[in-house]
Structures are given as C-alpha cells and as structure tokens.
Design a protein around this nucleic acid. Structure first.
Length: 492
RNA sequence: CGGGGUGUAGCGUAGCCCGGUAUCGCGCCACAUUUGGGAUGUGGAGGUCGUAGGUUCGAAUCCUGCCACCCCGACCA
C-alpha cells in the first residue's frame, strides 16, 4: 500500500478513484466497464442490503428472483420503456462456442448456434416481471402484489466509474401491482420515504425528496419520484428512485384483474430501486484526504483496537484487557476488531484504519495499563481523548451514536451552504461556475427551457421538491410565470 | 461512440525521439534490532516491457491491428 491519497481540492475525480481502490472497496476488472467489488466494499453493501431488506419486509414486501435474460419480444412490449433502454442493451445471439479451425487453441462462436430469438440482458426487469404477473394476477384478491428482487443488471455505458456508473451493477428492484391508482401512488411514495429514511439515517446522507420532470422521467412511468443528494464537490447524485407506472405495463402485458364489483380492469404498477451507486454517495459525502469516513451504522468494523506494546509479555497483558472489552462491546451489538498483528507498527495501523474509515480507534499501551485508561480517536473529526478504560463500554456506544448524528449534520450543513436561490440567468450561471451545488430557481414547466439550460450550462433539473413552498415568480429564461422553485444542479 | 492521453515486477515510474535484452522508489521474502502516528539495517526473490502481427541479424524502442484504463464531449441509476 502506497502512502497518501490525492487531495480532494486538487483533483476530486482522482481522489475518488484512488480512494475506492486504496481503501479496498473495488477495482477495475478484465471486463470493460465492470468492477470487482472487494470484500471490504462488499461488506458495506451487505450491511446496506440487510437494512433495506428489513425495511422492505416491514412494509409487506417479499423477495423473489427473475431471470437475467429477457426475450426480445417481451422486452419490446412496453414501447416507451424499450426505447428508453434500447441504446444500452447487451444482447445474447448465440448459445455455443466451438474450436476455431483457423486458429488453433482458440474458440469462436458457432455460427450454427444462433438463437431463434435474441435474449436481452436485463437493464431492468419490468418486462420479464410483468409478463409473469399476468399469470399471477386474476382477482382483486391477488392484490396488492408486493415483490422485490436483489439482482444484477447490465447497461452498456460508454463511460464508467467505479460504483457511480458501471456496465454491470447490483441493485434491488421492487415491482408491485395494485387495484387502484391511489394505492399504487401511495406505494410509490411510501418507498421513496423508505429510501430517504435509509439514506439519511444509515448512510447519514441528506436527501431532497422530489419528483422528476417529464424529461428526466423513467421510460414507461407516469411519474418518477427521486431522492437527490449533494456531493462534496457540489455535484448532485440521485440516490434512489420510485416510479408510478400507471397501467402502462399492465396494458403492455395484459395484466387484468376481476374487481370486487365484477368488472375487469388493468392493474396499477410501481417500481423502485437503489443500486451500488449508493456506495459512491457514501464515499463522496463524508470522506476526506486521509481516506474513507464511514457512518457507524454502516461500517463493517465500528471499532478497531490497536495495542501498543514492548515485548510479548506486555502484549499478553493488553490482550487480556482488550479481549474482555471486545466481548462487552460485541454484546452491545458493536463490531470490534482487535488488530494485534505483530507485523505492522502502530502508526501504520492508525493510517490504514483511517484510510478504511473505521469510525472509532482505541489505542492501549503500557502507560494506559498503569493508569487504567485508553486513547480513543474518532475518525470524522480526528479528535483524540483519553478515557477511563472501565467507562468504554458506555462511552463507545454513545460516541458512535454521536458520530452518526454529527456526520449527518456536517453533510446537511454543507448542503445548506451549497444551496443557492437565484432569480436571474446570469446569477444562475455564475453560481454554477463558482460554488456549484443546488441552485433553486423558477422554471416555467416547459421542456424547451429545461433543455436549453441543460445545453448551455450542463445543469439539469434534479427534481421538484415535494415540500417546495408556493412562491410566485418568473422563469429566469423565458420570463413566463412559475409557482415554485425547482432544484437545478450539475449531476453525476 | 467522437477527440486527446496512457499501458514497462503487486503499485508508482526511467528508458522509447536516435533499435543491441530494462532504471529507480515503494511493496514482498529472510534475519536482527524495533513498536504512543505510515521503523531501520543486512541479504534476497520477482519482468514473455498490455496483446497479436509486421520490419530487422536484433524490437520496450519503428509500423499496423486489437484490448484495457484515464481525461474531455454525447448517453445514463
């Protein structure tokens, strides 16, 4: 491991890439655009999954699994959706290889093994799922149908970045069917709130809840809800989406149900998802030039204990105390690592665990043995303090809780400082160029002005906030009247 | 996919213009001394120079194709 990371202030992208690799989260693979998620990175993802999965179950959802491949005829059934994803689909055309007669030791695609119908590698699973739902739903008694799946999907991206945009990524996709539009909308909103709850309270990343403009809407949806977060470099990142699909997929796949009243009607759908992109948000929101800063609620290791000793005898003395402490902390649900490697020195370990973002470090040395103390260092502020050893079992849980709140508040403050109201296009452009961040401005609601602003400034409308206040104003470009401000930003 | 760049040991690099079998640092292995913020010394291992062809007596170096990565665009969770 080489020392030091690039500075955020000098090259934010480089800092991000190096951090992801050096902290052992992920690396590029032999496959273009696809990453290898390494054990430490995957451990964080697993914690995210566990929490989210519990939240999904608590709101009545069940997990299932649908195929990776979607026959082309199914894929194209919902036209809007198919067209939206067409440009980035991987397609399976053959099912067999053979030895290449012209090139010894090499294989080639067997031209005789062409599939009668091409298979699309799912960029999302609406098609395969709704074609299945047709068979699952006959009556209002079968509704609502609340299913989630954890899966990988493939979108053939031109330009990729670890976690933020990869050709293959991991996510969960919820797909539900309801008897009424109201119920489906309530589900769409509910899941948006679930995501917001998770992202704010576990990831400690503040979100703006809102709806997308028609331009930014999911292909095939009537309404797309989203949560948007602001990264340290002033760019926005969508951290989750929830779609109200109306009856679009029900109609495309002929999913009808017998109503209580004896009629026959198409069901109403939703879909919602978060992906490994959340990892990118987690990294970019809190981390610093020394490495990752992980919120205690998602850190695979919450506390690391580093012994400082001279000789094996002293290590044995320290170990005895540490093992007892470790047991007590673990009993309180805290994950603890005792880094008793004899092959690295304390200073090296300090730097390494800081790079990996472990929230709390406890160091115990000879002096502490004599005094009955320990040195406690918190990762977020890098403050160190000396604590009574016996108080640690109450001090540490409280500290972790305090840190969780503290890093959220820090991110919240950063967002507040980088959210600017503007009333003129000049000011708008100036804010984008100088400080970045969210820019709150009036918009006349037309796709034309939205498009023009995007072309001229690279900024897009991230969302129309659900809690936006009514305020009469005029579009900064067209001068037409507007009822509320919308969130603009340059985005990932 | 367009424009630009890069690819040499696990990582970071020198050498490439001007062809003669590869430099340095970190890391790795062994031993010793060390251990309260990225240890030091001594010895050692590790390379089909991204890949496939071509030119040449000889290619990391020159030429061509391909692959991957990075930056900037277009596209996007």
């Amino acid at each position: 491991m080489s020392k030091g990371l690039p500075k955020r202030s000098e090259d934010y992208s480089l800092w991000y890439n190096e951090l992801v690799k050096k902290a052992g989260l992920a690396e590029n693979s032999a496959v273009r655009g696809c990453m290898v998620i390494k054990p430490y990175g995957y451990a964080i993802w697993e914690k995210m999954q566990r929490v989210l999965d519990d939240m999904f179950k608590a709101t009545g959802h069940e997990n299932a699994y649908f195929p990776l491949f979607v026959p082309k005829s199914l894929f194209e059934a919902e036209e809007q959706n198919a067209e939206g994803f067409a440009k980035e689909c991987a397609v399976v055309t053959h099912y067999r290889l053979q030895t290449d007669p012209d090139n010894k030791g090499k294989l080639r695609v067997d031209p005789a093994a062409r599939l009668e119908e091409e298979l699309i590698v799912r960029p999302t699973s609406e098609a395969i799922i709704w074609s299945t739902y047709k068979n699952w739903i006959q009556s209002y008694r079968d509704l609502p149908l609340l299913v989630n799946q954890w899966a990988n999907v493939v979108r053939w991206e031109m330009r990729t970045r670890l976690f933020l945009r990869t050709a293959e990524f991991l996510w969960q996709e919820g797909h539900t069917a309801h008897a009424t539009a109201e119920e489906a909308i309530a589900e769409t909103e509910q899941m948006l709130h679930v995501y917001a709850d998770f992202v704010e309270n576990y990831m400690a990343v503040p979100v703006v809840k809102g709806i997308k403009t028609p331009n930014e809407r999911f292909a095939g949806a009537l309404e797309t809800y989203c949560i948007e977060s602001l990264m340290q470099d002033g760019k926005a990142l969508q951290t989750g989406t929830s779609h109200f699909l109306g009856q679009n997929f029900a109609k495309a796949f002929d999913v009808k149900f017998a109503t209580k009243e004896g009629g026959l009607d198409y069901v109403w759908g939703t879909s919602w998802g978060v992906s490994t992109r959340l990892m990118g948000a987690l990294i970019m929101t809190h981390s610093d030039d020394e490495g990752l800063v992980l919120p205690p609620n998602l850190a695979p290791i919450q506390v690391v204990i580093v012994p400082i000793y001279k000789g094996e005898e002293q290590l044995a003395q320290i170990s005895e105390k540490v093992n007892q402490l470790k047991k007590e902390l673990q009993a309180k649900g805290i994950s603890v690592k005792f880094d008793n490697r004899d092959t690295e020195r304390p200073g090296f370990k300090f730097a390494e665990w800081e790079l990996k973002g472990v929230p709390v470090r406890i160091a115990i040395g000879g002096r502490d043995l004599e005094n009955g103390t320990a040195e406690v260092a918190r990762r977020d502020t890098k403050e160190k303090s000396t604590q009574q050893f016996d108080s640690l079992t109450t001090y540490i849980p409280a500290l972790l809780e305090e840190m969780q709140a503290s890093i959220f508040n820090k991110a919240l403050q950063h967002r507040a400082e980088h959210t600017t109201k503007v009333d003129s296009y000049e000011e708008f452009k100036q804010v984008l160029e100088t400080k970045g961040g969210f820019v709150l401005a009036h918009w006349d609601g037309s796709p034309e002005t939205e498009e023009r602003i995007k072309e001229e400034t690279k900024a897009t409308i991230r969302c129309i906030a659900l809690d936006a206040e009514d305020e009469d104003g005029v579009d900064m470009l067209s001068g037409k009247p507007s009822k509320k401000r919308v969130y603009f930003a340059k985005a990932y």
